[in-house]
């Protein structure tokens, strides 16, 4: 993982991309977009699919919003943004339905609910509405991949402990007692809490060592 201090020699725009992966990770650091993170992370496959769908919407909506940012009056910007996002989500919903009906059933209403993922509106408001097209694209891509990574972290842990498998492949040794609670809603809360604790602890240790923040 790259840290801020290594980025001096990298080409312009790399920072926009990389900050979403680690330093400003939408889930672990900013704690945004929690609902889909908790709800569809019960298996690694669902988590990955949800992450990719969100990334797709995020990149396209960031690009579109950055493109129209000069023409939108300040008072109606949130409404405009959310309508743009809703259009892309509709596209994604039909896409997923066309690609895999099983996946569409597994994700259920949460595909439509990408519209109200605060992370997407947050990036639109905080970044895309103030920056040019290329940085907005990179920002969307970075944040999206960071989000997917976080979802996958959760999904993998929950699937491994909850059903002793990963991507549906049995991994656990015979006699492994499934932790049913991990697949249930409460498991989502506990797993995310554990990851956040880990991240808090890592950050504190780095700060204590005088590392670059």
């Amino acid at each position: 993982m790259a840290t801020a201090s290594q980025q001096g020699a990298l080409p312009v725009g790399t920072d926009e991309f990389l900050k979403g992966l680690w330093r400003e990770n939408p889930v672990f650091v900013q704690v945004l977009g929690m609902c889909p993170v908790l709800a569809v992370s019960n298996t690694a496959r669902n988590a990955l699919a949800m992450g990719l769908a969100t990334t797709f919407v995020l990149v396209l909506s960031n690009a579109a919003i950055s493109g129209v940012r000069r023409f939108v009056p300040k008072q109606v910007r949130i409404a405009t943004f959310i309508l743009i996002i809703a259009s892309f989500v509709t596209v994604v919903e039909y896409l997923i339905q066309a690609i895999s009906l099983d996946l569409h059933k597994a994700l259920g209403a949460f595909i439509s609910l990408i519209v109200v993922n605060c992370m997407i509106l947050g990036r639109a408001e905080a970044f895309a509405s103030k920056n040019r097209l290329a940085p907005s694209l990179l920002d969307g891509l970075g944040m999206g991949i960071g989000f997917t990574f976080a979802l996958f972290c959760l999904g993998a842990v929950r699937e491994l402990l909850g059903s002793g498998a990963l991507f549906g492949v049995e991994l656990a040794p015979a006699g492994f007692q499934d932790w049913v609670v991990m697949v249930l809603p409460s498991g989502g809360f506990f797993t995310l809490a554990a990851w956040l604790l880990l991240f808090n602890w890592l950050r504190r240790r780095r700060d204590a060592n005088g590392g670059a923040a």
Binding site: V181, P185, S186, F189, F190, N200
Partner: peptide, 22 residues
């Protein structure tokens, strides 16, 4: 401990509430 304060702790509480609602 300082490290558990904030969101992580809130999530653990939410998890326990969720178990209760089950």
């Amino acid at each position: 401990p300082d490290v558990v304060r904030g969101t992580a702790l809130a999530l653990v509480v939410a998890g326990i509430l969720s178990v209760a609602f089950m």
